[in-house]
Write a protein that binds this DNA or RNA. Structure first.
Lengths: 371, 371
DNA sequence: TTGAAAGCGCTAACAC
DNA sequence: GTGTTAGCGCTTTCAA
């Protein structure tokens, strides 16, 4: 337990250990590295381990990295940690990376390409071994150049057309289908969509999912019932929903691109004296913390953000371990969480809609999971 | 703009630049470092800069760090990023550090001493230049040993008795005073306290603040109106508040140790059919995102978490720049945010209370800041 | 199985 | 002013 050092100050070095163990530094290196321990005599190895222990020796990853060109560090690019969604993703990444001995280096980009570029450069300079990008911008500079130039990249919360890049995302298609089906089962035929920004992957994919889900249920997709927001914010949700409401009132259900947009819908309802869910139902997306405490508690689609992060970490480790690991693209299943913001249609559906009846009634509370 | 390299592969090195500029690597180092540029000929410097630009040279901080023993990296120890409060602190730190060229290395500890210890070791090994600890545990292993042994540490969101360690915290004393005064002005005399865990600094300091504020207002401090929670969670808030409510009903106001505990109080009210704020008022602490959307919207004390982080970063930079910078201890002013969870007493105050009248009425909306 | 020696990319003390 | 040299702490050939 004694912690006396041989070198004058600072932590013990490989050389100090070598001196104490009476061997050459190279031997200490071999003995201490599990990979190469086999090359060294059992006896000697033990002596080295003891000496290291006695000196409280900690290998210096900086020096090691300089030699090996591996920093055991992964750059994590995220729009904004203050968004609880990304905080969860990051924790998943951190926990997933930890046991493998990797450490995340985190940077917030605020979805600003310039800031992202800078962060990427800085991280490259710091010799990160790879990047996990949770930045949701579509048509992204990161992909064409960097990936081809050998940087290991894993996408989380978004993907690209190309199959060359490993990615893990929530299954938005499925999630939106759950939302639309839920509303349809409540008798809604005319369903509106407050879509997220189409420049962001999640905004775009959920919009696509909406179109497909409506068609699959043979519900009419009315372009005038779709409004595109400029940002995933409450303010934009209020603006878009207001626009919708001022345009027409022959619908009583809204699928929002995420929870913040849904929250904005609440504001628009209140400004117009509309009751939710009595007058109009709304479904959010993400199941952020505390949406169950809103007035009314928000029905929403839960995305397993922590698992998204943990899985992204696993994909990264795969890439790191073998040069030729196939770039897997994973979809994680969402889950509909039915709360208080959705209710059966009060008025009869609009005249033109077919009279298809709802398949079955849904009980409130906990809920339908997808496979 | 061309990016051809001289060395076969990998990024350009100092030597590559030297070769292109036709000078010695040492000269390149001097020319590129703003600190030492003065030592080199204007002409030569320009040539070097151009060569560096042409090659797309990026200095390798790993190599530099090995030489200088400075990594330009700060370890950040935080209980849990998924807690929005700490996410804000971390963003403040990141932004505060960035312009000085420092990067945070973040680890979550979940308030677990063992995990914190491990994270600390790992960061030390990675040669971080200092630590910013947002971990709120009192009586903390970090301080006695490490600080004395030369590690630079800045505390955020907590402090210690010793003045030797720089710290920046919210002024809990002041914040709780604002809360208690607000309730007193609404006519409350018997005020209960659902205190946070006393093992955590914020739980403890707010409890102290509560005692002082009550005494300052000459309100009776009744020990049976104070319950200590085991954690800053909604569940614990519900348990403690329930205990209080089942014990007696001759109070109509609660100061909670934080917003989550206040939220738990909501649950306890609901379970007992109590109306808030009609039957009982409650004040939270922190002003987390979305507490304004709760039912009722939560009256709470806002803590400038982002600024806490940014200030902590500034204090760290001070320590880093000069060996003998005084370890400043800063208090940031909180702000009372009055919303819907507090209301005037319905029943007359309990008989024993003195009949001191409220000093002045408070207007709703934005509100009193401290100096 | 171990020692010797070179060198990762950079900085800094010293010499010219 | 600029070149020279020596290493930071570690890994990894190459010999022995």
């Amino acid at each position: 337990m004694a912690r006396r050092k041989l070198s004058l100050a600072g932590p013990a070095t490989l050389r100090d250990v070598a001196r104490v163990a009476g061997v050459h530094p190279g031997t200490v290196s071999r003995a201490l590295n599990p990979q190469t321990r086999g090359l060294v005599n059992e006896q000697t190895a033990r002596r080295v381990l003891e000496a290291a222990e006695e000196l409280g020796y900690r290998p210096n990853p900086i020096a090691r990295g300089l030699r090996t060109n591996r920093s055991h560090t992964i750059g994590v690019l995220v729009p904004d940690l203050m968004n609880s969604l990304f905080a969860a993703v990051v924790r998943g990444i951190e926990d997933g990376l930890r046991e493998a001995g990797y450490t995340p280096l985190i940077a917030n980009t605020d979805n600003d390409a310039a800031r992202e570029q800078v962060a990427f450069e800085a991280m490259s300079a710091r010799q990160v071994d790879g990047f996990i990008a949770a930045t949701a911008v579509r048509d992204h500079w990161l992909l064409p150049d960097q990936v081809r130039s050998g940087a290991k990249v894993v996408l989380v919360n978004r993907r690209v057309a190309s199959d060359a890049i490993p990615a893990v995302t929530g299954n938005d298609h499925e999630g939106i289908r759950l939302a639309v089906e839920h509303l349809a089962e409540l008798g809604h035929r005319r369903i509106a969509h407050v879509a997220g920004p189409q420049a962001l992957y999640t905004g775009w994919s959920r919009h696509q999912g909406f179109l497909d889900a409506m068609r699959a249920l043979r519900l009419e997709v009315d372009p005038s019932l779709i409004v595109f927001s400029d940002a995933f914010t409450e303010r934009e949700g209020a603006r878009c929903c207001g626009e919708l409401l001022d345009r027409r009132r022959d619908f009583a259900a809204i699928v929002a691109g995420n929870d913040l947009l849904a929250l904005g819908c609440y504001d628009a309802f209140e400004a117009r004296g509309l009751d939710c869910p009595g007058g109009v139902s709304v479904v959010g997306y993400n199941d952020m913390p505390f949406v169950d405490r809103f007035r009314p508690p928000l029905t929403t689609v839960r995305v397993p953000h922590y698992e998204l992060g943990a899985t992204a970490a696993a994909l990264m480790l795969e890439q790191l371990r073998s040069r030729e690991a196939p770039p897997r693209q994973l979809l994680l299943a969402p889950e509909l969480v039915i709360r208080g913001s959705t209710a059966p249609v009060a008025e009869p559906p609009a005249p033109r809609a077919s009279t298809r009846t709802a398949a079955k009634s849904t009980t409130a509370g906990e809920t339908g999971t997808s496979p």
